[in-house]
Simulated assay, not measured.
Amino acid sequence: MSLTVRIENATTAKRIWKLIKDTYNAEMELSVLKKMNLKKNNIYLIKVITRADEILHDMDLMVDGKIKNHPGYQVVRKDCCARAYLAGAFMASGSVNSPTKSNYHLEIATLDQDHAFFIQKLMLRFDLPAKHIIRRNQHVVYLKASERISDFLRCVGAYDSVMNFEDLRIQRDFRNSLTRLDNCEVANEMKTMKAGRKQSEDIEILEKYGKMQYLDKRLQEVAELRKAYPEASLNDLCETYEQNTGLSISKSGMKHRLAKLSELAQKLIEK
Rank of each mutant, 00 (worst) to 15 (best):
S93Y: 03
L128A: 02
K208V: 11
P99M: 04
V186W: 10
L264P: 00
I7E: 01
M59L: 14
M254G: 01
E270I: 13
L19N: 05
Y24A: 00
S233I: 05
F165L: 07
D114I: 07
E8C: 09
L19E: 03
N9G: 05
I67G: 02
N97K: 12
I133F: 11
T245C: 06
D160E: 14
Q220K: 07
K66I: 07
Y142E: 02
Y24H: 02
S2Q: 11
Q199F: 10
A87S: 11
M123W: 03
V75T: 09
Q74F: 15
R197P: 05
M254I: 04
I7S: 03
N41Y: 12
F90E: 02
H132T: 09
V76K: 00
K121P: 04
T23L: 08
A52D: 01
H57W: 08
R135E: 14
A259S: 14
N244G: 08
M163N: 15
A223K: 00
R125P: 03
S252L: 10
L61N: 00
A84V: 04
M163C: 15
R154T: 11
A84F: 05
K217R: 13
S233N: 08
M91C: 11
E239M: 13
R15F: 07
G94W: 01
M59E: 04
V5S: 02
E270P: 08
Y85G: 04
I55T: 01
L124F: 15
G210V: 07
L225Y: 01
F117K: 13
S233Q: 07
E270Q: 15
A89V: 03
M163W: 15
C184V: 15
M212L: 07
D167N: 14
H105V: 10
K198S: 13
L19Q: 05
D114L: 09
K271W: 12
A187W: 12
Q213V: 10
H132F: 12
V140P: 02
V162T: 05
A265Q: 01
L124R: 15
Y44N: 03
I203Q: 00
K34T: 13
T192V: 13
L168C: 13
A228I: 11
E201R: 11
A145H: 12
N137F: 10
S262P: 07
E204S: 10
L206W: 00
A10G: 13
D112K: 06
M254C: 04
R218S: 09
F152D: 00
V5K: 00
S150Q: 06
M59S: 05
I134R: 07
E207F: 06
S161D: 13
F90D: 00
E270R: 14
A116G: 03
A116V: 02
E207G: 04
R175G: 09
M59T: 04
E147L: 11
R169D: 07
K198M: 15
M36G: 11
I67C: 02
K144T: 12
D202I: 05
G72K: 08
A158E: 05
R15S: 06
F165T: 02
N235E: 15
E263P: 05
K14F: 10
S93T: 06
K260R: 15
I16E: 01
N42H: 10
I20Q: 00
Q220G: 03
L56Y: 01
T192Q: 09
E242W: 08
I149C: 03
A10E: 12
Y241T: 02
G157C: 06
D112V: 06
I7C: 03
P129I: 05
F118T: 01
I7L: 09
